[in-house]
Every structure is written in structure tokens, then in C-alpha cells.
Design a protein around this nucleic acid. Structure first.
Lengths: 232, 232
DNA sequence: TCAACCATGTAATAAGTTACATGATTAT
DNA sequence: ATAATCATGTAACTTATTACATGGTTGA
């Protein structure tokens, strides 16, 4: 349902074609939403049928013609109505974090490799979004205008940048954690091999399979510093 | 596709029923994923048909019987394979941020109301997740064990807490920003009314419709402090 | 010349959500 | 009494993704 309002909101700012809207979803709006063209085009047709938007054909030179949509009064009312409605719960689908959650199943070196690769991905994304922000801030300064619209979209932009910044920071801290604790994988692997070689005394072996918390307490507390309330 | 591996990964840690898995998705795993029972049950059947997991019926007293699933060797191999695979791109669907992006369309007081309400929601979620973390950390300390499994799930937990903490901080800062800048809404509203009353000189009116950047520069720079690189 | 961009769509499939169905137990 | 928890599923529907289809222009 929200895609509908994402498009409607977008058209409350500027007139745009389906293609334009997709670009906005990929750039600025990618902080909170994403969508495919094959979903946007049918949705635009539905919105037009419901008379929340209207279209006009614009002929272009050197480029294919395009259908430019604008919001109607009815559409504006519908948008305002939705804005006063409680939001749907946040839906996160973070496959990388899911993999991380289960990464004890692969060797420590592979874990480090994955974390470093992902860090690069986040870093690139942060650079992208920082460029968008600099451009925006410069344009506001140059034109010397400030509107509630600019204010609210800037707030969202800030959230987007922070999200990336802190994800990146987490990557760094987690790489450090795994580097300091990779002996855990070696210990567990050794215990597994021992377990195969002598299956008779498996109870004794299981107790040596894991390290004690005391061995990593300092590293662990440093990793969680600032998040845990100190108990007295 | 990832739900499949979420379940498989879950079963690489403990044996569980569909109902148990759902609880884990709602609690610990909610940091990176969510799923309904009506999606989990069919997926479990598929996984069993593919021989990645196996089930046994466990009779219970005072409770309905349950089907407890465990991962097979084939399943463990499939999981490891997936773990070495690049993750799908992060998919965020944040309806609240979407609304925020378009909130210039509703009065400033409504914006503040929405921000304050959402802040409470995030706050409650943070409290929940902090309790989960405290329980986890205490149990590790008590039992005095440390395994790579605990390490990796703790890393994910940290990310979850940070996410909530910084979202909450953003709510606070954005509430402050809107409070300081709510005169923008009043100004734009006044200009709109003037525009209706005298449609002849609309060009002149549009120039007074928005405030200048200079009027809010100090507030704006404070809001973005730490995110923007200073230009010399 | 080959990829990328502009531009709009449909069709098939996959994934996710809500509603329906059943039924026992436990806590308020 | 009534709601919540435990437990497993199916059916209908909505949403999202990938593949297919078309075709001109621009830049490397």
C-alpha cells in the first residue's frame, strides 16, 4: 500500500514520469524505499483510474515521448489523510546480518573476508549519499531558500547518512572483535576433530570445546562499551 | 530465498518446531528479518522434502503435540554454501521515514505529534531489545562459556541496539529542528492564503512564500554537525 | 560496435500478508 | 467468561521480482 503513497507524495513535489519516479526511488528515496519499474507503471495506471493523479503526453526530441503525471486535488487530500495515519511497522530485510548471525558455521578467515567485503559495499553507498547531501546543501545555500519541504527531506537525508555511518562503524568494530577472537574457531575445530577420533569420552571433550568467557571478557566489554549499563 | 536459510541457520543452532522458529524470528532475529507462521510452515515442508531438515513428532502433556525439526548433513552443507555467497542487497521499507519525507504537507503541530509518537514506539522497542541483551550477557557470564556462535549473535545484537539508539537520537534532534523551524509552515500557509485572495500578483507572492536559508542557517548547521565536511 | 540511457509496458513467478479453520490449556 | 498461549496448517489475496518485448539515442 505504501508504494502508492510514495508515488503520490513524490508527485506532490514535482510532476514526473514513471521513469523519473524510479530514478527518485533509486536515489533520494532509496533511504526508506525501493521499487521496480514493472511495479511503478501499473501503480501509476491505478492511481490515474482513481483520479488521484492525471497525465499528459510530452513529446521530446531525441528521446522517446513520455507520460508526465501530476497530482490532483483529490490526490492531495488522499495524501494528507495518509500522512496523519500511523505508519506501518518498519520492515527490515538484512541478508548480510542474517548471514553474520550464522557465521560461526564458516572459518574465521572467511568471516573476516565477508565482513571486509561488506564494509566496502557500505562505504561506497555512504560516499554516494554524501554526494547527494553536499549537492542539496550547496543548492539550498546558493538559492538562499528554505521551505518546510526542504527541511523534512533534509531530515530524512540525515537519517540515511547516519544509518550508513554507524553500519560502517559496526563493521570496523566487528572485524576487530573477530580478529581478536578467532582462536575460538580454531579451538572448536580442534575439539571437533578430537571428537571424531575418540567418541568414547565425548562428555569430557565438550567441556574443552569452548573457551571461557573470562578469556575474552576484556575484549567483549570493550566491544559493548556504551551500550550496557554498568551494574554496581 | 533468504527465509529458507534463516530457518536452516536457526536449525543449525537448535532443534525447533515451526512455532519455536516463529518466536525466534519475533525476538532475536527481528533485528534483521520477520516472517509469518503461514510462510514458515510451508517452507519447513519444502526443506524437509529437499532433505535439508528432518522432523520427529514430540508428544507433550497439557500442550498440543509438536513437530520438531533438525538439520541434516545435507542441510548443513547447503547452509555453509549460502554463507559463502554474497548477501542480497539490504531492503528497507520504512513507512515512517516515507511519511516524514512528505510531512511538509501537514501542519507543523501534526508533524511534531507524529515524531513524538514514533519516538515512543522506537523507545519501547529499544527497551525490549536491551532486556534481551542483558539476559544474554548475564547468561554468558554465569555459565562462563564463549563460543564463536555466541560471538556472532552478540555482534548482530549490538547492531540491533545501535540501530534503535541512533534512530531515537534522530527523533529527538528532528523534533528539536521542527520546533525551531515551525514558522516555515506558518509563512507558507500565510502566502497560500494571500495567493488565493489576490491572484494577480502571484509572482511577487511566491518570493515571500519561503524563508531564506540565512534565517535558519545556524539551526541547520547544528542539526547537520558532524555529518558535513567543513569546506575551507 | 557495444553498452548505457531513455521510455513504457506485460507476463510469469516468487514472496509475503490476512483470513479462515481447528482445538486444547492456562491465566485473568 | 474471556483472552492469551500453544500448535499446525490451508486459501485467498496482495506485493514484489525477474524475464520478456520494443526501439531510438548517446557516448566510449
Amino acid at each position: 500500500m505504501s508504494l502508492r503513497y510514495g508515488i503520490l507524495g513524490m508527485l506532490s513535489k514535482w510532476e514526473a514520469s514513471g521513469y523519473d519516479i524510479k530514478k527518485e526511488f533509486d536515489e533520494y528515496m532509496s533511504i526508506f524505499w525501493h521499487s521496480h519499474l514493472s511495479q511503478i507503471y501499473p501503480e501509476l495506471n491505478k492511481l490515474e483510474k482513481d483520479e488521484l493523479i492525471s497525465s499528459k503526453l510530452v513529446k521530446q526530441v531525441g528521446k522517446p515521448d513520455k507520460k508526465v503525471y501530476s497530482i490532483t486535488d483529490k490526490g492531495r487530500k488522499e495524501l494528507m489523510n495518509w500522512l496523519l495515519t500511523p505508519p506501518e511497522t518498519l520492515k527490515m530485510k538484512d541478508t548480510f546480518l542474517m548471514q553474520t548471525f550464522f557465521m560461526d558455521n564458516i572459518p574465521a578467515e572467511e568471516v573476516l573476508l565477508k565482513l571486509r567485503m561488506y564494509k566496502k559495499e557500505r562505504q561506497q553507498r555512504l560516499e554516494q549519499i554524501k554526494i547527494i547531501m553536499q549537492d542539496r546543501l550547496n543548492s539550498i545555500k546558493e538559492r538562499n531558500v528554505m521551505k518546510s519541504r526542504i527541511l523534512m527531506s533534509s531530515a530524512v537525508l540525515k537519517r540515511g547518512i547516519e544509518q550508513e555511518m554507524y553500519y560502517l562503524k559496526w563493521c570496523d568494530e566487528t572485524i576487530e572483535l573477530v580478529e581478536k577472537c578467532k582462536f575460538l574457531w580454531a579451538k572448536e575445530e580442534a575439539a571437533r576433530i578430537e571428537h571424531i577420533n575418540s567418541q568414547s569420552e565425548n562428555k569430557e571433550i565438550q567441556s574443552t570445546a569452548s573457551a571461557t568467557y573470562t578469556e575474552v571478557e576484556e575484549i567483549f566489554l570493550k566491544y559493548f562499551a556504551g551500550l550496557v549499563e554498568e551494574e554496581k
